[in-house]
Design a protein around this nucleic acid. Structure first.
Length: 512
RNA sequence: GCUCCCGUAGUCUAGUCCGGUCAAGGAUCGGGGCCUUUCGAGCCUCAGACGCGGGUUCGAAUCCCGCCGGGAGCACCA
């Protein structure tokens, strides 16, 4: 029967089908509208509990966006709860906690529209972690190890168990107490989970659960010297906080195994579902908190919200809308693919949102002065605030024979006829010649007679020879703009006004 | 090297679990055109993909095997 049908030509099959079941020929209408998130495994409306676990070493940046946007989006989708749990265990020397980062993280999340219910701190929960540790120690599932990190690494590689692994539980507990009492120095003892020294994944062999750090903690000072590692603290807190779903990057898959192992040995029943997403990278953008920190310290950047960084604060200052960031991130879904996207994709999303609101103005970067000969007497011209919305009104621009044009335009069009947009046609040169007033179909460039100093700050893009800022002249009305206005400098791009003073208007470049 | 994950247009993504309506959808980018006093927006249009090789099947992007390619982890960081 099937073979019979297959022998028919596609046209014949189609005709035959049309006579039997014409509705099957209708193409299903492709779904449009906002992208729907795939369902979360075992998610129950109203009962989903998610958590966000930022490490307070600096402000959140665009590279963290996938984690917080997805968690927030799912919390909203299922009308669940999203907890903000600062992952502020002691960290390491080269990745210290910054006291101001707590507020910087919250500020970023608030801007992004992430609605978290409660704020918790790992550093407040250390006694709970100790309790669980003691259960593990008492059952012999974990032990205190005095090997130094180098020995530990070599043993791991050689699948070799050290003497501590088999020591008595009593002895282990005495050593644990000695750790807490400060009888060991930094690096002299750790608590290790007893997994399997022959485990196929070398990284998994008797992983460290606690270590000693003598540094002061920004929130709890010197109250603790024995600090949990991330995996262990999450095994405790995910269970205790009733987290139903853990959404994390796939660089953290081994943490799933660790948490699961600990729950298994401790007989913990209620567990979250683990869901991962791939690594997100930006083309031409190297996100480095430590580098930006250095540059800020050296005064080359003005602060964590400097538009040349990629912090959420910097995005806000460049006129990027939170909704654009959200759409951008959600467009990747939950895929496990590691992706590298151009920042242009974010800009495309943002442009859709700001274009209708951004009024147009002239800004002439690196001005070159030009004197037009033969110009009829004229003092000002009019141009629309927004070409798509004439009702919004017009701007009056002072005009006359002495104008400024952009250096790039001057170089490109010197000796050629161009139209000074909304003004007149000239043959461009230092001594330019007036041609006519009427609108012609020739290249149009922006110009300014006298106006205000504009300082435009550009974002940071690696391997770009472009300068990170540019100065020039804006048309007179630019001086009347307000902080937070998002405008489009014609032929230059969208920018947000950040500061207005008599001396200059400072604007942060968003994108073209 | 070991462990795990992933391969759909330049880029991102839908489809893969449950094989047929997929002669593969969308977005973005690119080409062309229209419109527009911006290199913006809008409209129309074109181009562009199932990593490779076997197998199963009437039929494979979808199932199986092998290969190739990419990524992550392998810290007393998170």
């Amino acid at each position: 029967m099937v073979a019979e049908v297959n022998r028919l030509s596609p046209e014949a099959q189609r005709a035959e089908l049309a006579s039997i079941a014409p509705e099957l020929l209708e193409k299903p209408t492709p779904s449009t509208g906002p992208k729907e998130l795939p369902p979360l495994p075992k998610a129950v409306e109203g009962q989903v509990v998610l958590r966000l676990a930022p490490y307070p070493s600096g402000p959140l940046h665009i590279g963290n966006a996938r984690a917080f946007v997805l968690n927030d989006a799912y919390a909203k989708k299922y009308r669940g709860r999203l907890l903000l749990v600062f992952d502020d265990t002691i960290g390491s020397e080269d990745k210290p906690i910054l006291p101001e980062a707590y507020d910087q993280v919250k500020e970023g999340l608030d801007w992004a529209g992430v609605e978290y219910r409660e704020v918790l701190y790992k550093s407040d929960r250390i006694p709970l972690h100790y309790e669980w540790a003691e259960k593990l120690l008492a059952t012999g599932e974990a032990y205190v190890c005095e090997c130094d990190s180098e020995t530990l690494r070599k043993n791991r590689e050689a699948k070799h168990a050290c003497v501590h692994r088999t020591q008595d539980v009593d002895e282990t507990i005495a050593m644990w107490k000695a750790m807490l009492a400060g009888e060991y120095g930094e690096g002299e003892a750790v608590v290790r989970l007893k997994t399997d020294m022959a485990h196929p994944n070398p990284a998994f062999r008797d992983r460290v659960l606690f270590r000693i750090a003598e540094r002061d903690h920004p929130r709890v000072g010197d109250r603790y010297r024995v600090w949990p590692m991330l995996e262990f603290s999450w095994a405790v807190d995910d269970a205790l906080l009733g987290i139903t779903h853990v959404l994390r990057g796939k660089d953290l898959v081994m943490e799933d195994q660790m948490e699961t192992w600990i729950w298994d040995v401790l007989g913990i029943r209620a567990r979250p579902e683990f869901v991962h997403f791939g690594i997100l990278r930006f083309k031409d953008v190297e996100l480095s908190k430590s580098r930006y920190r250095r540059e800020i310290a050296a005064g080359r950047l003005t602060g964590i919200d400097d538009p040349r960084t990629w912090s959420l604060q910097s995005l806000r200052r460049r006129g990027i809308r939170p909704a654009a960031l959200r759409e951008f991130v959600l467009s990747f879904g939950l895929s496990l693919n590691d992706i590298e996207v151009p920042a242009e994709a974010l800009y495309a999303e943002n442009r859709k949102m700001i274009d209708k609101d951004a009024n147009r103005y002239f800004f002439v970067p690196d001005p070159v002065s030009v004197e037009i000969s033969g110009l009829p007497p004229i003092e000002r011209v009019k141009a629309p605030l927004h070409p798509d919305f004439p009702g919004r009104g017009v701007r009056e621009i002072a005009a006359g024979p002495k104008v400024h044009v952009a250096e790039d335009d001057f170089a490109k069009f010197r000796g050629k006829e161009v139209r000074l947009k909304d003004f007149c046609n000239v043959v461009l040169d230092k001594r330019a010649k007036f041609v006519s007033m009427e609108n012609k179909d020739i290249p149009k460039i922006q110009w300014v007679m006298h106006g205000v100093n504009v300082h435009l700050v550009l974002p940071d893009v690696t391997e770009s020879p472009e300068p990170r800022e540019v100065r020039g002249l804006g048309e007179p009305l630019v001086a009347a703009l307000k902080v937070d206005d998002v405008v489009q400098f014609e032929r230059v791009g969208f920018a947000r006004i950040d500061h207005v003073s008599k001396a200059e208007v400072r604007a942060y470049f968003g994108h073209r």
